[in-house]
């Protein structure tokens, strides 16, 4: 009985993915047939090539990849450094700075959207670039909190031992703390990377040429231009979704644990 319920729900949840792939292989004629066919009569592999050629997908993926690398590395670096300072150093004004972070955590993206838009368009003049999609995301309060919590759990004895050995803070961070934090670092990397891959509203507002637009904006654009070519639309959706599904297959443990522990909902 339990298995029947779980299985039925699994089918309902998986079905949209099946339907996407199934439609992606059909001819336009078959995709718009009524009643629809469950399995494609012939497999039209060329749909993927056609969809890929109809829009500058290679550029969209390249942009997302570059932004993803820059944001993930940058955010990881700034967060690790700041988290270490909050977790294992004491300095004047630490409490006050930490309070600013807490307050920032309460401010939703909806509040900052318009001022940031005005800032990058009127003052920084970096609209329609890759930088504008990178710089605002080079630090994350959430990542700092997560890493700080973990760094604090590292036993003081290790720090004392490092000190006896004459290792300074940076040395201790690099050769003791980071190796002990690999799972958390993986979680932060995955959550940040997925965030970049899904980024939509900000790039939609601050870019207007294909040369710098990321994948999701490309997908929305493709839908507007080729929306009536359902089979191509589904082929495009397939290759947009495929990378995250692949990453998920390999890293689901980290992702699910990360979400369970942190409770963030994108």
């Amino acid at each position: 009985m339990k298995h029947v319920v779980l299985m039925a729900v699994a089918i309902v949840i998986a079905f949209p993915f099946y339907w996407m792939i199934s439609t992606a292989f059909k001819s336009f004629f078959e995709a718009t047939q009524f009643p629809p066919t469950m399995f494609p009569h012939e497999l039209h592999f060329e749909n993927f090539a056609t969809a890929w050629g109809d829009a500058p997908w290679a550029g969209f993926f390249r942009n997302t990849f570059l932004i993803g690398i820059a944001v993930t590395l940058g955010e990881l670096t700034t967060s690790v450094l700041a988290a270490y300072a909050f977790a294992r150093l004491s300095f004047k004004g630490q409490g006050a700075i930490f309070f600013i972070l807490l307050a920032t955590y309460m401010i939703p993206g909806e509040a900052t959207l318009i001022p940031n838009f005005v800032l990058v368009t009127r003052y920084l003049h970096i609209v329609d670039t890759l930088q504008v999609q990178i710089i605002p995301f080079l630090a994350s309060v959430f990542s700092i909190f997560l890493l700080r919590q973990h760094f604090r759990s590292i036993p003081n004895e290790l720090a004392d031992a490092a000190e006896v050995d004459g290792a300074g803070h940076l040395r201790f961070l690099w050769s003791v703390v980071l190796p002990l934090s690999v799972p958390v670092l993986v979680t932060v990397t995955l959550i940040t990377g997925l965030g970049v891959y899904d980024a939509f509203q900000w790039p939609l507002l601050v870019t207007n040429s294909d040369a710098v637009r990321p994948v999701q904006v490309g997908m929305a654009q493709f839908r507007t231009e080729f929306g009536a070519q359902y089979h191509l639309e589904m082929a495009a959706a397939t290759f947009v979704i495929a990378p995250v599904v692949l990453i998920f297959l390999f890293a689901q443990r980290y992702l699910i644990q990360g979400v369970a522990r942190t409770g963030i909902r994108g």
């Binding site: 700034t78 450094l81 700075i97 920032t104 401010i107 800032l119 080079l138 630090a139 309060v141």
Partner: peptide, 18 residues
């Protein structure tokens, strides 16, 4: 020095815009 990079970005793009 360690908190500076993160704080600058957070102040400019997340805290002050609020």
């Amino acid at each position: 020095i360690l908190v500076l990079p993160a704080i600058v970005i957070i102040l400019i793009f997340q805290f002050l815009p609020g």
